Simulated assay, not measured.
Amino acid sequence: MSRDIDYGNLMHTAMRGLIRTVLLDIADNGLPGNHHFFITFDTGHPDAELADWLSDRYPGEMTVVMQHWFDNLDVGEDGFAITLNFGDAPEPLYIPYDAIKTFVDPSVEFGLRFESPDDEPKGDASVPAPVEELINTPQEEQKTDADIVSLDSFRK
């Protein structure tokens, strides 16, 4: 009986751990300098929690911004809760780490993209596009045009 090392899932776990570590620091110390995050997540994830009007408006995925105002950041083992402002209306969200599709900090040109087995490769999956492509892409186009870190080359 042989087994393979699942590098793709191991990388995803490590990258989600990195996001958790960053958010724990932000919860304790606030956002330093010009740091801010664009976080795209699957609104249909069974453990994601958001207002009905938000899930109706964003039935597949949604990009939120953590920058000037956020409240009640509570970082857990499997995800994080946060209150964000949507048109002057504070709304609580719970985002599981495994619902996150992209995590970008444009202030330092850092970005992660999580591929799922259902995602169609965009171009040559073994050569990720530069981070600048995601940063300079309008927010409404980010979810379709950006490849930051692609793990498809590690999958069988």
Rank of each mutant, 00 (worst) to 15 (best):
F80H: 04
S126G: 09
F38I: 05
D78R: 08
V108N: 01
A99Q: 13
V65P: 00
L93F: 14
A27V: 10
L18H: 04
T63Y: 07
L54V: 15
A99M: 11
L18S: 09
D47S: 12
A99Y: 15
H36T: 03
P90I: 09
P59S: 06
A125G: 11
G17M: 02
A51L: 07
D71F: 13
V64R: 00
I19W: 04
T63G: 11
I100H: 06
I26C: 04
T13N: 04
N85L: 07
T13F: 07
M11W: 11
L23K: 06
P130T: 05
M11R: 12
S126R: 13
P117Q: 02
L23H: 08
A48G: 09
D28L: 11
G33I: 02
D28V: 10
E109M: 15
A14F: 13
P117L: 13
M62Q: 14
A14N: 11
F110R: 03
S116N: 06
L93W: 12
L73M: 12
H35G: 01
V64F: 02
M62R: 14
D25W: 00
P106S: 14
L54E: 14
L24F: 02
D119M: 10
L18K: 12
P96W: 03
P128Q: 09
H68G: 08
W69R: 14
D98F: 07
L112A: 10
P59Q: 09
V127L: 13
I39R: 05
F37S: 01
M62S: 11
A14E: 09
D28T: 11
G76W: 01
A81C: 03
I39K: 02
N29A: 13
L10T: 00
A129Q: 14
E132Y: 07
P121N: 09
L54H: 12
L10C: 03
G79P: 03
D74Q: 15
M66L: 15
G30W: 01
P59D: 09
P90M: 05
M15G: 04
V75D: 01
A125P: 15
